[in-house]
Computed example of a mutant assay.
Amino acid sequence: MDMQVTHSWTRVCDVADIPRLGSRVLERDGGNVAIFRSATDKVFALLDHCPHKGGALSQGIVHGETVTCPLHAWNIDLASGTAKAPDEGCARHFPVRVDSDGAVWLDLA
């Protein structure tokens, strides 16, 4: 069986609009989205809500491809949203596309 993934892309910003090793927040109904930029300019997007106690991940510290929640120091993998052991849980992840001109697109569906 051939399954097709359909994306509904929304342009949200340019890579340059996101601080390196930082984030910016996209406010929306259903929960804000934190858009992160690594030191190597990789871009990731997670629901701005730690799976532990709901802390704003956008206010955390980005290191490598991980963000540390500012409330209780949980480490969340930016690529998947999964908490790193020994912690357990997952923040919702949103697919990201970056065009060659630096435009950042998210699938918010």
Rank of each mutant, 00 (worst) to 15 (best):
P86A: 06
R20V: 15
V96A: 10
P19M: 15
G54Q: 06
C13V: 03
P51Y: 04
G81T: 10
C69M: 09
N32P: 00
S8E: 15
S38I: 03
V67D: 08
V15I: 15
G89K: 10
A45D: 02
I61G: 00
A56M: 11
A56Q: 10
V25C: 00
T10L: 10
V43D: 01
G60A: 06
V33P: 01
P70H: 09
A45E: 14
G55P: 04
C50N: 07
R97A: 01
K53I: 07
D87A: 14
D2M: 12
L108R: 01
H52T: 11
E27G: 09
C69R: 12
H93Q: 15
E27C: 12
L26N: 00
D29P: 06
G81W: 12
S38A: 09
N75T: 12
L46W: 04
P19D: 14
C90P: 05
A39P: 01
D17N: 10
G30I: 06
T10H: 15
E65I: 05
G22V: 15
L21R: 12
H93D: 14
A109L: 03
A16F: 00
E65R: 06
G54K: 10
L57P: 01
D29V: 09
N32D: 15
D107F: 00
Q59K: 09
G89L: 05
A85K: 10
K84N: 05
L71V: 12
R11H: 07
G55A: 14
V67W: 04
R37Q: 13
V12W: 02
V12A: 11
D14L: 10
C69S: 07
P51S: 06
L106R: 03
D87W: 05
D2A: 09
V12S: 02
L57V: 04
V98C: 09
N32F: 01
G54F: 07
S38M: 05
I18V: 15
E27I: 04
D29R: 11
T6C: 04
T82Y: 04
H52D: 12
D41V: 05
D17R: 10
C13Y: 01
S100R: 13
S100V: 14
A83D: 03
C50K: 03
T82H: 10
F44V: 05
G31R: 11
T66S: 07
A45K: 02
L78D: 08
M1Q: 09
S23K: 08
P95Y: 10
M1C: 08
W9G: 02
R97S: 12
P19N: 10
V43P: 00
D14T: 01
A73C: 09
G54N: 08
W74P: 06
A39C: 02
T6N: 13
R28T: 02
G64N: 11
A45W: 05
V67N: 08
L47H: 14
A39E: 12
W74Q: 04
G102P: 09
W105E: 15
D87E: 14
R24M: 15
R37C: 05
N32T: 01
F36Y: 14
F94K: 01
S58R: 01
R97F: 09
C50E: 11
A85G: 05
P19A: 13
